[in-house]
Amino acid sequence: MELVEKMLSGSDLSLARLITLVEREAAEVPRIMSLIYPHLGNAYLVGVTGPPGGGKSTLVDRLTAVMRAKGFSVGIIAADPTSPFSGGAVLGDRIRMQQHYLDKGVFIRSMATRGSAGGLPRAARGVIKLLDAYGKDFVVVETVGVGQTELDIMEATDTTVVVLVPEAGDTIQTMKAGLLEIADIFVVNKADREGADYLAVELEQMLRMSPKDSGWQPPILTTQAIHDIGIQELYQEIERHRDVLQETGQLSLKRQEQRKREFIQNIEQGIRATILKLAEKDGQLVSFLERVEKGELDPYSASMEILSNRTLLQTWLSELEKEG
């Protein structure tokens, strides 16, 4: 595929167009992914998440400046929500990252969530891979600031940074499950505001109540991203976390886990698409569907009947092969 070759030889435009194909879940995606596969695994993936308005974009901007000063290239994915009403979106994270617009070593892509429920667009994993294949040393992924269900980002990246601000709520808020369990590094941003030290202390006490046994205790940093304070320290903690993951073998384990999950998800998606296709034209399935719709048959016994009918499943398979 010409676009992939051009991308691998350093064309920004080709990279951008490949990202669009991945984002659109185009038919070419499996082909693109297998072509870039040999070029994967060199980028270190950093996720940045936390409630809206916490300063994530500004923090990513400053962190990127530190990475650039050390000579590393950076890819940034900045996600913002799609409107459930119009399907449109306003993508505004880029505004905070203007100092990097003309730097060839930084590639910024804004993505709308397009119907994904977590803070991460469905296509983000594919886009991370493209940036990795393109040769970026770091890929930084900023999520939508949804708050409590951010597991996607933990699964998709190596180090997860959770950004909180003093006005984010009391300790009970921080004891709730979700956001706080996924953090490898805590950042209390806007640390010049009242209550920042208090929040940091409370976080620390809470972490002590449930120590992790993975050989890594999440550090708590205070930053003022807009004043460039605490960013070097954040970068150092990311590096330290990477070293620990590498030394303990957790990084390769995590990547193994990611590959496995992706393999299963791809098959799952393929089978789901196939079933949807069959549901339109296969006589037996259609008659089941009609009875279920009318309420003559309950959905559970209907699906069990289909799953236990081997001959039926085999006819479907052979029909699909014919279509191939």
Binding site: F85, S86, G88, G92, Y101, L102, F107, I108
Partner: peptide, 30 residues
């Protein structure tokens, strides 16, 4: 905002951009 409501994904650059920066953003964002 209006074009968001029309179902488009709108990336906003902010004020005071040079032509270089606008073109670069347009390319990266495709």
């Amino acid at each position: 905002l209006g074009l968001r409501d029309e179902g488009m994904e709108v990336i906003y650059t902010g004020l005071r951009q040079s032509p270089d920066k606008i073109a670069q953003a347009a390319i990266q964002e495709d």
